[in-house]
Design a protein around this nucleic acid. Sequence first.
DNA 1: CGTGGCTTTGACCAGTTGGTCAAATATTGA
DNA 2: TCAATATTTGACCAACTGGTCAAAGCCACG
Lengths: 201, 201
Amino acid sequence: MTRADTRIQKKNQAVILEAGLKVFSQYGFRGSTLDQVAEAAGLSKPNLLYYFRSKDAIYTALLAKLLENWLEPLRAIDPMGEPVDEILAYATRKLDMSQHFPRESRLFANEIIQGAPRIGEVLSGELRELVDEIAVVIDGWAAAGRIKPVDPYHLIFTIWSLTQHYADFDVQVRAILGDVDPFDGAATHLEAMLRGLLQPK
Amino acid sequence: MTRADTRIQKKNQAVILEAGLKVFSQYGFRGSTLDQVAEAAGLSKPNLLYYFRSKDAIYTALLAKLLENWLEPLRAIDPMGEPVDEILAYATRKLDMSQHFPRESRLFANEIIQGAPRIGEVLSGELRELVDEIAVVIDGWAAAGRIKPVDPYHLIFTIWSLTQHYADFDVQVRAILGDVDPFDGAATHLEAMLRGLLQPK
DNA sequence: CGTGGCTTTGACCAGTTGGTCAAATATTGA
DNA sequence: TCAATATTTGACCAACTGGTCAAAGCCACG
């Protein structure tokens, strides 16, 4: 069967996606070449194209995989939980992702900066709906006096921007901090910031 | 004289840089082509190369121009001023830059994400020194009880990340906010956040 | 074993890329 | 006005790009 995923197929597809992530996250789609991906994967170019129809197919597969992990933490916010804890947990989780999956973050950043040609619909569809739901929850918390009044959308942007900054601008952050590990101070700072913004007096 | 900058030279160099900014800020250096820049500039490709030695020269010229404007607001922070006002003024200025010069922000973001191959030294040199100086000032303010204790480096990262987010992730922000102007709420939110973080009770 | 399908590859292709160059065309100053 | 200079361009090039293909190697299973 041409269809069955043999062990070799599974392995090589994974190898190629790993290589694609490495290359695409640094140079973006247009700035990357199949030769680069092939080299990073340790496979020949025609061999890449035996497993994926095209350069585009590799990139698209990566984006699809990424989007799952990207949206999931948002869904994990519990409207029934303790507001400040919930938001803090979300922010911490995003920060962890930046620390442990910086290439995924950069892949996403590259795609967005370039105008999100392939995921624009997800952004204005699925993502927007999700954020709208969370916004209602946060507004509810504020109305109940459980957090200080805050614009939920910009609160979410704050969390996104700061956490992803440590992944996307890694080079700059490290250039400034020198030997200090960015993620040590980041977690503490993020918590202080969000508490200052949210915690009712 | 081949040297003299005639009116035509001045004008065409400016046209090319404007076109280069447009193209490079969206696709990054490697993802952009001279033909794209030429088309955006309304000039032929060989004509571009009459004014700039190479694709690289255009890009480098843009980066150099950008770095000036990028570092300048940091220098404008006045150690003698009122702490919260100074920091708020800096943040507001950065936000204004994101609003009015989003392409410059994206050009910078692209360069950093790709590992800052051309400006790495500026980051770990000039920029780092500048930030170190500001950090001392902020620490001084904190020690004097004029602001709450805060990690100055992560405070600066917070301001950078959030303000630049509105430029770099413009597509995503607008996808979520729909018709609402991002910069309306952003300014208010940014101020609230920084006051919550900094203002001594 | 051997054979049929899975996997890999070298050779190749057409289109694109950054860049060159000589010739043509504007522009300027005496 | 006209020649010297500045500007513009069409034609071209070698290197690189994503992608194809037929042939060769490899492997499991009868």
